[in-house]
């Protein structure tokens, strides 16, 4: 891992305007899917984005890959502002930033052979001219598939194997950053570990940076260096994985960790303190004023409705300033408080 910043996202916003019928009137409304988030990813580093549905994880990944255009803020890749690049200008970025999708069934064209699926990105970018087939077979071997299966169709593969094809397609153009949007959540439990191991192996061998989007806290803990916890379009807590899991400061992060069922209960490790939230995530169309989490928060006071808490270090102003360089712990709550007993300490055999 080097210290070079690959991706820098500043105050990123994506608002979806739409019209809604209210009685006899058409009213303009806005879904604030992503509403001012900032983070950086360095070369070879892995950032985890976690949160519940509707928190803006997937929209964030679509903005960073520029499959969608931000309505505010900037995205810089290797120092170049790519926020509003035109389609033809994006080609080079597309080579460097690739995506792995959640559903290995709908993300592969069922009418194309694996060979065709993997040759297309090579043709688009003019890579390995005349030697495409050799490169495709090399890619298949790299992700643990039989290179002789080049002429098969996606339907002839299992879910785990299809996800490997999706991974091979992302790797075909030798990207520097991979956005993986829930890459294992559609797979069988016994297959998830195989695909996680493959991603970890590729990350080490090819020195890839990842943005890893997932709702499974265990998988994120296993795979990521930094974690950003999102709630209703905002980052509420950001920091090194160890900080987020072992000493979370934001009440939402604490509730999320506490809500995840824990297999260690069966190993006789005492159930951690339980925090139970009331109700569902509010609609991003008209999010609560001030702190967006206040409607479900047990600490909420008047100030929470009036002022939006900034994403800062709970302990010192110094570390807020060094945030851009990474390696710190930030949270956005008016009343932060460390809790350390939410995730059971796992004893390791062997």
């Amino acid at each position: 891992m080097s210290d070079k910043t690959l991706l820098k996202v500043t105050d990123l916003q994506r608002h979806f305007p739409f019209r809604e019928v209210q009685g006899l009137k058409m009213v303009k409304a806005t879904v604030k899917a992503v509403d001012g988030i900032s983070f950086t990813v360095k070369e070879g580093q892995t950032l985890g984005l976690v949160g519940e549905s509707g928190c803006g994880k997937s929209t964030t990944s679509r903005l960073v890959t520029r499959l969608d255009e931000p309505t505010g803020g900037t995205v810089e890749f290797e120092g170049r502002d790519i926020t509003h690049l035109k389609e033809h200008e994006l080609r080079e970025i597309r080579r460097n930033v690739q995506m792995i999708f959640q559903d290995p069934y709908s993300s592969l064209n069922p009418r194309q052979t694996v060979g065709a699926i993997l040759t297309t990105p090579l043709r688009v970018h003019g890579l390995h001219k005349g030697k495409e087939k050799a490169r495709v077979q090399e890619l298949l071997a790299l992700v643990g598939l039989n290179p002789e299966h080049i002429n098969r169709y996606p339907s002839e593969f299992s879910g785990g194997q299809r996800q490997r094809i999706g991974i091979a397609r992302a790797l075909a153009v030798e990207p520097k950053l991979i956005i993986a949007d829930e890459p294992v959540s559609a797979l069988d439990v016994s297959i998830q570990a195989q695909v996680m191991n493959l991603l970890a192996k590729l990350r080490n061998e090819l020195d890839l940076a990842f943005i890893f989007v997932a709702h499974d806290l265990g998988v994120v803990r296993h795979f990521c260096d930094q974690v950003a916890v999102m709630y209703l379009g905002k980052i509420v807590e950001y920091g090194d994985k160890k900080k987020i899991y072992e000493a979370p400061e934001h009440p939402y992060t604490q509730a999320l960790l506490s809500a995840a069922p824990d297999i260690n209960v069966a190993r006789g490790i005492a159930p951690k303190e339980r925090i139970r939230l009331v109700g569902d995530v509010p609609s991003p169309i008209d999010p609560p004023s001030g702190c967006r989490f206040r409607t479900r928060c047990w600490k909420a006071q008047d100030i929470c409705a009036q002022q939006e808490p900034p994403l800062v270090s709970a302990t010192s102003e110094e570390s807020t300033r060094t945030f851009r360089e990474g390696g710190v712990h930030l949270q956005a709550c008016h009343f932060p408080e460390v809790k350390t007993d939410l995730v059971a300490e796992v004893e390791h055999s062997a």
Partner: peptide, 24 residues
Amino acid sequence: YGLLQSLPSHSEDLEELKAIKGTP
């Protein structure tokens, strides 16, 4: 045994997960 071993919570951070080979 294989299912339990393959869970991320059973492994040290970043070490290889102990996957069950093959597919159902």
